[in-house]
Design a protein around this nucleic acid. Structure first.
Lengths: 196, 196
DNA sequence: GTAGTCATGTAAGAGGTTACATGATTAG
DNA sequence: CTAATCATGTAACCTCTTACATGACTAC
């Protein structure tokens, strides 16, 4: 149900076509709710059928057309309601940690490689997140600009801060992963040496 | 594909029926890969069809029967191979953070409530994780005992440590969440006061 | 004319959730 | 005999992933 929420979020910044949505998705809500063109187009159709959004057909060149979607009043209300509603935490899966439980079955060097890869993965995440935080601070992205333009200037800093803090949360998480992985490596180096 | 891995992991400790699997699931691999009876029974059937596990029919009382599943040689190999393989990080979704991005649309008190709930949620997680770590240290759980019994004593500490460190990872994550949420509350209290 | 972009989809399948269904066995 | 436990499923539905399909428009 939350792809729907993500799409409502994007359209609450500005109206756009499905194609635009696809293009802007990754660099906006996609950080927290990744999706694909196939799913986005489908969901847009369903949301229109449900009256949350309305598409107006606009000409494109001579013969072709495009559908520009915008929130309906009901869509806007639904979006606000969903934001007021407390979050329902879904069950989370962690394939890496599941695998980690059985690292006693594999050679120590391989286990070490896996942990190194985990650290590399987390460092990459931090980098990417920092780049996006920078993008928000400097108001690159048409979506953010459009959102700010529709709200009074005294709210701008708060709006930006919500985005930034959301990304900072993931930075903190990634850093916790790095801290943990390094500690795990030490723990097992110690076990290994005391065994011999 | 990783429910399959989780089931291989459980059966690598000891053979058991689907019913036993369901009972032990939550308190073992379920922490990292939650599942349901419906899914577990289905997957067991599929895995047997694929030759990863073999079920032997055992009598139960007078008329009834039960299937006791055990790893086949192929299943054991597959399990080890999957453990050797580097982890493929799937795309992650974070509904709470997605919602958080739009907290500028709701009253400050509601946003504050949401963050408080997030802290409460994380604190509960830490408690539950600590209880499970304690359970492993004290070797409650037939599964752990059985696993240890099948391996040489000098490996016992390492086996336990892999489980404990996996859980510790989630403890660190939950603590990072608490730290973040408290910081976010402060940031927005400050924004609120500077606005007036 | 042709390559890249704009624009919109369909179809198959994997995995997960929820709810319901069934019957034997054991302990009191 | 009755309730709890043991034991095993089926069915509908939703979401997500992957791969493929189609055609118009624009800049060169």
């Amino acid at each position: 149900m939350s792809l729907r929420y993500a799409i409502l979020g994007v359209l609450s910044s500005m109206p756009m076509t499905g194609y635009d949505m696809v293009r802007h998705f990754d660099e906006s809500v996609g950080t927290f709710w990744p999706s694909s063109p196939a799913q986005i187009y489908q969901e847009l159709r369903r949301m229109e059928a449900d009256g949350l959004i309305a598409g107006s057909v606009a000409p494109r060149g001579q013969r072709a057309e495009k559908r520009i979607y915008d929130l309906t009043e009901g869509g806007r209300q639904t979006f606000k309601l969903l934001t007021l509603q407390p979050n329902a935490y879904p069950t989370e899966r962690d394939g890496f940690r599941l695998q980690f439980c059985y690292f006693d079955l594999i050679p120590n060097e391989v286990a070490r490689d896996h942990l190194d890869a985990h650290i590399a993965h987390s460092k990459l995440q931090v980098e990417q997140l920092r780049a996006r935080i920078d993008g928000i601070r400097n108001r690159r992205s048409v979506l953010i600009q459009s959102r700010l333009n529709s709200r009074p200037p005294e709210m701008h800093e708060a709006i930006l801060q919500f985005r930034i803090q959301a990304l900072e949360a993931h930075v903190l998480r990634a850093q916790a992963e790095i801290t943990w992985a390094k500690r795990a490596i030490k723990v097992f180096a110690h076990l290994e040496s005391s065994k011999k």
